[in-house]
């Protein structure tokens, strides 16, 4: 393989698979709230709700 191809392959892998790893880490650090009660504030109708 040419050097430019190797470099671009590594960049593509690092960006996309790195993005996936970062997204997974981000998700693990932000677990969903445990509380089963629905807070009223999460789903307020917006302006113009019909």
């Amino acid at each position: 393989m040419d050097l430019s191809a190797i470099i671009m392959m590594i960049i593509a892998i690092v960006l996309v698979w790195g993005g996936l790893v970062a997204a997974l880490i981000h998700l693990r650090r932000n677990p969903d709230p445990e509380d089963p009660d629905e807070p009223a504030g999460t789903a307020q109708p917006g302006p113009g709700y019909q």
Binding site: A5, M8, M9
Partner: peptide, 8 residues
């Protein structure tokens, strides 16, 4: 093949 795919 990889060379063809990744050569910019």
């Amino acid at each position: 093949g990889l060379n063809a795919l990744f050569t910019p």
